[in-house]
Amino acid sequence: MGTSQGCVATAAGPLTAGNMPDSSTSAQPPKEERIMTVARVGHPAPDFEANVYLNGGFETMKLSDSKGKWIVLCFYPGDFTFV
């Protein structure tokens, strides 16, 4: 888990075979492949690295850091909205 406090902080986003860091060693440049992973029950959760706000601080985390525990991941349309 790293810490990045700048205005623009990159995080790897979805971690698929196509954009894992060590895939750059292959002879062919990795094709710009948009994320095709579709989450399905009974199948592995799509892993990702993301920037987060947690308890007053900015951090970078991977979802799979919590592997071994039950996880609830909730998406919602926006901060300061109504529901």
Binding site: A39, R40, V41, G42, H43, P44, A45, D47, L63, S64, K67, G68, K69, W70, I71, V72, L73, C74, F75, Y76, P77, G78, V83
Partner: peptide, 15 residues
């Protein structure tokens, strides 16, 4: 935006 979605993931990292 990301619409409202909720995912329960087990300790083996399966949804």
């Amino acid at each position: 935006v990301d619409i409202r979605g909720r995912f329960l993931i087990d300790p083996d990292f399966n949804i």
